[in-house]
């Protein structure tokens, strides 16, 4: 298990003030953050204001030293026993960095494998299976500079898995990828956790990605933890409204009255708008689902239903709501 306890990171930022003068200011990127990573589970890190996601990942992967607090990986301290920790973790970042462009895909993996102490047949086997896993077996002997963005990203994943890490950090892994490739990648990530038992920490700008993949979500604002729960609980706990929308061909006064009554009964609101096609669009918002009473009401009025749709609140709504509330 990876346990981060009260981790804090403060950067010293140099500011140039004119010719020779400069001033150091402190910027707190992560403040008092605690979380754990458990094998087989994916946790997501979402930030509201800029904040500390990448810094957190770099601290967990031993690239940065926390200003205070501790990170332990299977009992090893990430600062003191960093070489033990390095063997157990790996990181995959979005973008096209962290690969040698002049080397082929296979040569990249050979090099990084060697840096993890792998060699000989074991390394060769590992590379072959990884190349197959990420679908680069055919392109293995092509220099990386001739790879497409998606291929580079997949090679990054292979690099991130070369030491068979128990803990994997994904920093915006789908940044700038085409939609189909991103979807494939998400599938892959979810398998890494469910089938290979890896503990994964994911940060992403695409909230639906986090919602789809993560078992738990940590929401941080300016480096501070503001919420931690499963994506479903997060959306429910905020009691955001579900929107129910129905389109009907005509609206009598009595139906109008009954609709308003229905919304009132359920503690919600009602909106009516006339559309361009001479039909009526009724939207009911409320904490509880009003689909069944609405349908029986429409049936009682013998009104045909042209279209019916519901909108559940998404994690994105949660984030936006929180951002509004925190005055972002």
């Amino acid at each position: 298990m990876l346990i981060a306890e009260n981790v804090r990171k403060v950067y010293q930022v140099k500011e140039k003030k004119g010719w020779l003068r400069q001033q150091w200011t402190e910027v707190e990127a992560v403040a008092d953050l605690s979380f754990r990573m458990v094998p087989g589970k994916i946790i997501g890190l979402l930030g509201i204001n800029g904040a500390g996601k990448t810094t957190t990942i770099k601290m967990c992967s031993t690239l940065l030293t926390p200003t205070s607090g501790t990170i332990t990986v299977d009992g090893y301290d990430a600062v003191k026993d960093d070489r033990f920790v390095k063997a157990k973790v790996n990181m995959i970042a979005g973008g096209e960095r962290m690969l040698y462009w002049r080397l082929t895909g296979r040569e990249n993996l050979q090099y990084f494998g060697s840096l993890y102490g792998l060699q000989g047949q074991a390394l060769r086997n590992r590379i072959d299976s990884l190349l197959l896993q990420v679908g680069l077996y055919e392109a293995a002997n092509t220099p990386v500079e001739r790879y497409s963005k998606g291929m580079k990203q997949r090679l990054q994943i292979a690099r991130g898995l070369i030491n068979d890490p128990r803990y994997l950090f994904l920093d915006e892994p789908t940044l700038g990828l085409d939609a189909p490739i991103a979807r494939q990648l998400r599938k892959h990530v979810s398998e890494l956790a469910s089938q290979h038992g890896k503990a994964i920490l994911l940060t992403s700008h695409y909230i639906h990605e986090v919602e789809e993949l993560c078992d738990e979500v940590y929401i941080i604002d300016k480096g501070r933890l503001v919420a931690h729960d499963t994506p479903e609980h997060l959306t429910k706990s905020l009691h955001l409204d579900t929107a129910l929308q129905v389109v009907i061909p005509s609206l009598s006064d009595s139906l109008d009255y009954d609709l308003r009554q229905l919304a009132q009964d359920y503690g919600g609101s009602r909106e009516i708008a006339e559309t361009d096609e001479q039909t009526w669009e009724v939207t009911l918002r409320g904490k509880t689902d009003m689909t069944t009473p609405l349908l029986s009401l429409l049936a009682a009025h013998q009104s045909p239903v042209l279209r019916l749709s519901t909108q559940q609140p998404s994690l994105e709504d949660v984030i936006l709501h929180m951002a509004d509330r925190r005055g972002a």
């Binding site: 992967s61 031993t62 690239l63 960093d82 070489r83 033990f84 390095k86 063997a87 973790v89 790996n90 990181m91 970042a93 960095r97 962290m98 690969l99 040698y100 990084f112 840096l115 993890y116 102490g117 690099r159 030491n163």
Partner: peptide
């Protein structure tokens, strides 16, 4: 590529 090298033990 520096981070990738520093990541390794």
């Amino acid at each position: 590529t520096l981070e990738a090298v520093l990541l390794t033990p």
